[in-house]
Amino acid sequence: MGIRIGKQMLDENQQIQFTRLWTDAQPTVSQFVASLVRDPWAVRDIVQNVSLVLLRKFAEYDESKPFLPWALGIAKFEILGHRRDAARDRLICDSLFLDQYTQAWADIAPRINHEMEALRLCVGQLDGRPRAIIKLRYADGETSETIADKLNITADNVRTILKRTRDVLRRCVERHVGLQGESA
């Protein structure tokens, strides 16, 4: 029994294949969208639309080519069609920028994403003020100024701590990834 998407019918193998490919690509596509659109609800809508478009067009997908660039290409058009992020309009309205950005993302993200597991471990080891600032900056989306107000320190201090903490995380990730590589 297949499912009908528009005029196309996906057979069971295609459904399984789509699920596998989309499950792998979805985190990277979500990160790509979120890097250009700050509103989390808009990101959710866009990613949902991307998955529907991909499913609808999956019968046309050329299996000899990588799935991620195709998915990112669809996501790029969905972002263009959704332009509501005034703060970032200037960049995302520029089609040349968006093309270059999308292509570079498809090249770079798969090379870095394997560090995610180590990054989670390293972030989990943070303590004290660096831990608090990383949470405020990256989980709550606060700026250096608002973090500074909350912690009663200067914004420059916040930036310095953020930079040092990212350096610490980078070294920690490199160490873990290096060890994984050695033991592989």
Binding site: W105, V123, R131, A139
Partner: peptide, 28 residues
Amino acid sequence: LKEHPEEMRRFVEANVRDQMLRDAARGL
């Protein structure tokens, strides 16, 4: 970014890492 491919590469990598850190911080 449009004129310097190397800066575009650095910019995209910084954005990828920024998103990864956001995911990790939410896990935290």
